[in-house]
Amino acid sequence: MAKRIDVSGLSAYYGAHKAIDDISMTVEPRSVTAFIGPSGCGKSTFLRTLNRMHEVTPGGRVEGKVMLDDENLYGTNVDPVAVRRTVGMVFQRPNPFPTMSIFDNVAAGLRLNGNYKKSQLNDIVEKSLKGANLWNEVKDRLNKPGSGLSGGQQQRLCIARAIAVEPDVLLMDEPCSALDPISTLAIEDLIGELKERFTIVIVTHNMQQAARVSDRTAFFNLAAVGQPGKLIELDDTERIFSNPSVQATEDYISGRFG
């Protein structure tokens, strides 16, 4: 179910301005890959090209290929809506739909993508909430609005919503940066469990988090101010944090800049 991602020669633009340049990398299925790098280096932009959200921004444009197993996400007849169905995303600020109940939030993706009987929905919602470690806290108030939960709970709700549709890949854009340390830990544990079912890519500006959570780490950086971001190094997490091959990576890890 979880698929492998193969990126080749990907560049992304905002209008005429090139934001990231010629990125090629591979993400193995059922693994966690972390993207790290200083602010503005393009890691979030790159993440958003993986589920075709980049083109939603006015002027957003992509060149290159992203292969999901054997299909090019940017192929000629490919429907972006279908891509987003298979590649899910969790955002930096928790964003449950405020006018929907907790149950409806989790079921939202399901209702869009098929016709399910109430009993099926109940099962899937329960499974997703359990998978997001949220079931016990909300099982008695599934009909209350999603916005009534705490920040950490809301983010887990968003994760439940994303995994309910069984995506092939789960993208996470700084999912813990708006949360307190305890909720952060809970979500990091959750990621550890989820990676057995999904391919996960997580952008984080917190290096310790990347070291804790990921199998592989990719370091992005800008050549100079105003230049597009590039992939500097991609390797097993252990090696990146102990013995990186590129000097710039070493500088960033040890805090000399960023």
């Binding site: 999901l68 007849n77 098929g114 899937i124 998978g131």
Partner: peptide
């Protein structure tokens, strides 16, 4: 902390093998 990963008892929407269509 790890839950036993259940076999997926229900398959979700009929999965089209492909992302593209006419």
């Amino acid at each position: 902390m790890s839950h036993a990963i259940q076999d997926r008892p229900l398959s979700v929407a009929p999965r089209r093998g492909t992302l593209s269509h006419a």
